[in-house]
Design a protein around this nucleic acid. Structure first.
Lengths: 233, 233
DNA sequence: TCATCAATCAAACGATTGTTTTAATCATAC
DNA sequence: GTATGATTAAAACAATCGTTTGATTGATGA
């Protein structure tokens, strides 16, 4: 509800649209979210999206760009910090994992500034079939993924790189579901009511590191005893 | 291309529509897949969907029902087999995990009968915001999840149930990405060309078991050394 | 041979989609 | 005060959406 006489600066309307779109994309997905839903929620005119962004697709890109650039900037900063501490030595896998996935969960815990909303959207989007969004994600992620994979390769020289790549992929999946969180969990256990986001990070981190350091397939019987784990921490 | 004179049995058209819809849902998502795309690919008339299924939403449900019922039937059968072998004793976590996730990957490896297509669709749908699909999934999954969680609770009596629930959730995420597979992986590593689906199962299984058996958060420093792991296999 | 009925077809339905147009409105600088 | 440029507003755009209609087809059993 806004007084029609009071005028907003351009950037205010732009930001309101971005926030509204972000929230609606989480709730309904890209396709099911209409321009009218967005502008209505943002208290803006239907033409405002095309005026400020050009098209709906461009708006989607901008929603991602705004948050993703910041997320990967923080990730790389965290990695830089760890590498500076290590002083040339290979990092522990746990430090690398925490720099990448911990930063993401940190952002997801920030409910005040919309970080939570966005991270739920992001986690789902990796597997989403929308062509141009996927390509955009790939470009935006390229640098961060390259550096983190390189760090993991250094940290785990005895593990085949292909295996590390797959496990990184698995970890992304676990994180994605962790952030999607309670909603998807209630799908399994209706009674679930643990609303403690501060406990999520250690929970996920234990799981991820356990998976990353698991014995390689073929070495020892996975179901019997995990001897000869080639990973280290 | 079908001769207009030759007549198809009702079920043939129905199945062609289901197959076409399944494939298109994977490729474009639910909303972006139109009735005309489906009927065109199925070589059927635009009215055929509403005639055979009633509505688009009902078609979506039927796409899931057809495969999901069979998947969970196999899962429960695998669990029954393990429990019969154990003869009353608690199962090893590895057996439980393999019965649940191994069966899924088995189905995903079946490219001949559309299992692969469907599993990619399924993995994405857990985090998809489409309301009625999620509710349908919850109902269809209820029995299997209940029995597998109960088996895990028995297998890991020292681990808090809440923790098991979360780790089961994380495992679902890893599996989902594993099946989404190479497509999503290429998002990170463009050069990736490992098309060896038979190696995926042991890879994923090692990772999942490593995560499930990881030291609990709070017990020992996750990044330092995983002593005092309360899980067993 | 004819009635029956499930299945298919072309065509159209109203509703809604993203986008564009044209005019009105505001703050600002001269 | 007035011209300028950016923003907002209402209305309409063509296109496409899921769905429905009414006619037609072809196999089946009496």
């Amino acid at each position: 509800m806004r007084a029609p006489t009071e005028r907003q600066s351009a950037s205010e309307t732009r930001d309101r649209i971005l926030d509204a779109a972000e929230a609606l994309f989480v709730e309904h997905g890209f396709e099911a979210t209409t321009m009218r839903m967005i502008t209505s929620r943002a208290d803006a005119n239907i033409a405002a999206v095309n005026y400020h962004f050009g098209s709906k697709d461009a708006l989607i890109q901008e929603v991602f760009k705004r948050r993703l650039t910041e997320l990967n900037r923080r990730r790389l900063a965290a990695l830089d910090r760890q590498e500076a501490e290590a002083g040339g030595a290979p990092l522990k896998p746990s430090r690398i994992v925490e720099a990448f996935f911990g930063t993401a969960l940190e952002m997801a815990a920030d409910t005040a500034h919309g970080g939570h909303t966005f991270m739920r959207l992001l986690g789902r989007t990796y597997t989403e079939p929308n062509g141009f969004v996927r390509q955009f994600l790939a470009e935006e992620y390229a640098e961060a993924v390259e550096r983190f994979l390189a760090a993991l390769y250094r940290a785990l020289p005895d593990v085949p790189r292909e295996e590390i790549l797959w496990r990184f992929h698995f970890m992304m999946g676990a994180m994605s579901y962790a952030i999607a969180g309670t909603d998807a969990l209630q799908l399994f256990a209706g009674k679930f009511d643990d609303a403690a986001p501060e406990r999520l990070l250690p929970r996920l981190m234990s799981f991820l590191l356990g998976g990353l350091r698991a014995p390689l397939p073929g070495q020892g019987v996975p179901g019997e005893n995990g001897r000869g784990a080639p990973t280290r921490q």
